[in-house]
């Protein structure tokens, strides 16, 4: 394994079909250690599908995906290994409604890493402090606001100590006044050196945090570049059109 050299995430010619519809058309992307890549693009362009392929929530049909030196194959053990290293945050939070916030956060460490109960709880409380909802630990997700739920979901994903965090439109289901509290947490996470891929249209956040921007359309990565170029002087016509629409 390449602990220090080589990219954290490597996608090479990744293609994916849903029935006859080709959702990904030979996507190439490299993400370095501690790099934050923000992916944007019109709806249906394959952004979500791409990051869902990285932890095998979707199975790619062609190409290679290598995560921290482990190539995704049909071997269930490789998949589980990669999933332990990759945390994911969803648009709809997907907290487990029948468990308290604390139980949500301690579940994976206790079940997958077999951490002792006390240790898992202490770690979980630290994470809840970090996302600034320690006082919600014993509540059920249904009793929390959307922003609090999404921060709890971030804590849950962090509990496994992942090397990579994937964010699939984390603020799209939130009311405007709650978006900032989630983005603040994500920004801190990026500053701490986490490798992140964020699917988002929060361009203020992208400008501040992203090391690189990626623009996707029709299942392809159209343009990748540092945000200062991407926003002011995009190469591709399609990128220009898209940015003109959302900015």
């Amino acid at each position: 394994m390449n602990e220090n050299g080589g990219p954290m995430i490597l996608l090479e010619g990744v293609s994916k079909w849903f029935g006859d519809f080709q959702a990904l058309k030979g996507v190439d992307l490299t993400v370095d250690r501690q790099e934050v890549v923000v992916v944007c693009g019109p709806s249906g362009s394959g952004k979500s599908t791409m990051i869902r392929c990285i932890n095998r929530l979707e199975q790619h049909d062609r190409g290679r995906i290598v995560v921290d030196g482990i190539e995704l194959s049909d071997d269930l053990r490789d998949i589980q290994e990669i999933r332990r290293e990759v945390g994911m945050v969803f648009q709809q939070f997907n907290l487990f409604p029948h468990m308290t916030v604390l139980e949500n956060v301690t579940l994976a460490p206790r079940q997958v890493r077999r951490s002792p109960k006390q240790h898992a709880r202490e770690k979980a409380m630290e994470l809840l402090e970090r996302v600034r909802i320690p006082e919600q630990a014993n509540k059920y997700p249904g009793q929390l606001s959307g922003g609090q739920q999404q921060r709890a979901a971030i804590a849950r994903a962090l509990a496994m100590g992942p090397k990579i965090m994937l964010f699939d439109e984390p603020t799209s289901a939130l009311d405007p006044e709650m978006i900032k509290e989630v983005l603040d947490v994500m920004e801190e996470l990026a500053e701490s050196g986490m490798t992140m891929i964020v699917v988002s249209h929060e361009m203020g956040f992208a400008r501040a945090v992203a090391h690189r921007m990626a623009f996707m359309a029709d299942g392809e990565i159209v343009e990748v570049g540092p945000p200062e170029h991407f926003f002011t002087n995009p190469r591709e016509e399609r990128t220009k059109q898209f940015l003109a629409q959302i900015l």
């Binding site: 589980q80 332990r84 496994m160």
Partner: peptide, 21 residues
């Protein structure tokens, strides 16, 4: 909801635990 299963899978829970827990 499907998202519940995906969230559990993404955490690295085994299929048995996803179902049982």
């Amino acid at each position: 909801p499907r998202g519940q299963i995906e969230a559990a899978q993404a955490l690295g829970l085994s299929p048995l635990r996803v179902t049982g827990l």
